[in-house]
Simulated assay, not measured.
Amino acid sequence: MLAAKTAPFAHEQLNVFADDSRMGHIAQGPTCPQEAAPLFVSDSRDFLHRFKPVPGQPLTFTAPGLVQGPNAAGLRLIPFFRLHDSRYMVYWQHSTPAGLAKLRARTAQGEAERIALARRTIDQVAPGEQQPESDHAFAGEGADAGIHGGRHWRHASGWFSYRLNDKAGEGRVLRLTFAAVDAGRRFDVLVNDRPLRTITLGPNEREFYDVDIDLPPGAAQDGTLAVKFVAHPGSLAGGLYGLKLLRGE
């Protein structure tokens, strides 16, 4: 597998060594805007012939005219196992020259939406994933988990719950992510053991979709929020593919 070192921020000094803290292995530093990443631009997907070996440097390649983007000049692809202490590219976007401007605009819009959502997000859980569920006090009866469409889910014939953090009491909205394949399921959503809403999953043209539920004022208690999903008789609670606690718009 080939990768390329990138340098989206001039004179950046990365701390590439993990310490012994619990999350010390997680990379730190500013997020790189996606439009700052290089990409392949070609009229055809058949562009392997455009990779050129670098004389005297085994398994090292350039791609003249194929790689575009900031700081793309002189970029080299090397075996991933030789790449250290750097930001890098492994997965690349591809565009035709005619579609490049549209791709960049779509990429910028999507990133702006992700940044805005991240700023609104107080806490979140990835249902069905071990560490996020452990961090949020997962409990349940008749609960099961799995993967659909490359995404983890959690459901239960009885109930399951999480405890979200909201130290400042800013939470105003619960955003729940569901899948169209679960249409027909019916269950209750409770917050701090108080009924919030009954949900009946209906058909949806999107494979995955979000449902927002407004929270009552002062929902958080002692800086936390217990969210519980309880199945109706003969049905299942979930599957839940995402759970976010958001500030107001």
Rank of each mutant, 00 (worst) to 15 (best):
M1N: 13
K5T: 13
P8T: 05
A10Q: 13
Q13I: 15
A18C: 01
Q28V: 14
Q28P: 05
A36P: 00
A37Q: 08
V41N: 00
V41I: 08
S44Y: 03
L48H: 01
A63T: 05
P70M: 08
A72E: 01
A73D: 15
G74S: 05
L75T: 04
R76F: 00
P79A: 00
D85M: 09
R87Y: 15
M89N: 08
Q93P: 00
S95K: 10
A98R: 11
L100A: 04
L103C: 04
L103G: 05
A118Y: 06
V125M: 03
A126M: 04
P127R: 13
G128N: 10
S134C: 00
H136V: 01
H152D: 07
H155V: 01
W159P: 01
R163A: 13
N165R: 14
G171I: 09
A179P: 00
A180G: 00
V181S: 05
F187G: 04
F187N: 04
V189W: 02
V189S: 06
L190F: 13
P195H: 11
T198Q: 14
L201F: 15
P203Q: 08
E205Q: 14
A220N: 02
Q221I: 09
D222C: 04
T224P: 00
K228I: 13
H232C: 07
P233C: 08
G238F: 09
Y241S: 12
L245A: 14
R247F: 04
